[in-house]
């Protein structure tokens, strides 16, 4: 029972401390799940994000479900997911009930301008760690540059990148003798 509580609280902490959604959660996940709890490795996190890109729903929820199942099975998946959404539900309900002008408050806007700078730096720091683990040879450098360039300059769906790079991975490995 204790480990379910731990799972719930860890993900509630991640959900409650992430500002800006989606990728802004990456530094928190990295810190809590890889460094502190050691529940998963850096590569697992990259995999979960890749899968989250091409499966329905919110990426943070997908990652929570994955990690929860890995730790404690199906019930763990549900507990971790409820943990990650718990702070949002509480905070948003309070704001919706009492502070409908929350987003217009000047102090909130200044605080968020500051937060965005920090989110930027935190994501950079997290990406550079993932980069070292995933970009391991000239093929992966090639895939990285292609996807980065195309996603900046075109409107292609991330699903296209994920599917193509998966196929590329198989082609490269088969050519190099997979067996």
């Amino acid at each position: 029972m204790n480990s379910y509580l731990d799972l719930f609280l860890t993900f509630a902490r991640i959900g409650g401390l992430t500002f800006g959604g989606g990728y802004a959660m990456l530094p928190m996940l990295e810190r809590e799940l890889v460094e502190n709890k050691k529940w998963i490795a850096e590569e697992d996190l990259t995999d979960y994000f890749a899968i989250g890109q091409c499966t329905p729903g919110v990426i943070a929820v997908n990652v929570a479900t994955f990690v929860g199942i890995k730790q404690l099975g199906t019930l763990g998946g549900i507990v971790a997911t409820l943990g990650v959404v718990f702070p949002s539900v509480v905070i948003i309900t309070v704001i919706a009930a009492f502070l409908s002008n929350f987003a217009e408050l000047e102090v909130v806007n200044h605080a968020f301008a500051g937060l965005r700078v920090c989110v930027c730096v935190l994501i950079f720091n997290a990406v550079s760690k993932l980069f070292k683990k995933s970009i391991v040879d000239r093929y992966t450098i090639g895939i990285f540059l292609c996807v980065l360039g195309l996603s900046v300059f075109t409107n292609l769906s991330p699903i296209v990148f994920v599917v193509c790079s998966g196929i590329a991975g198989v082609v490269i490995k088969v050519k190099g003798g997979i067996n």
Partner: peptide, 13 residues
Amino acid sequence: AVFYGLRAASVAL
């Protein structure tokens, strides 16, 4: 092999 390619794309995204 799929994940080998996919991780590079994921980091790029």
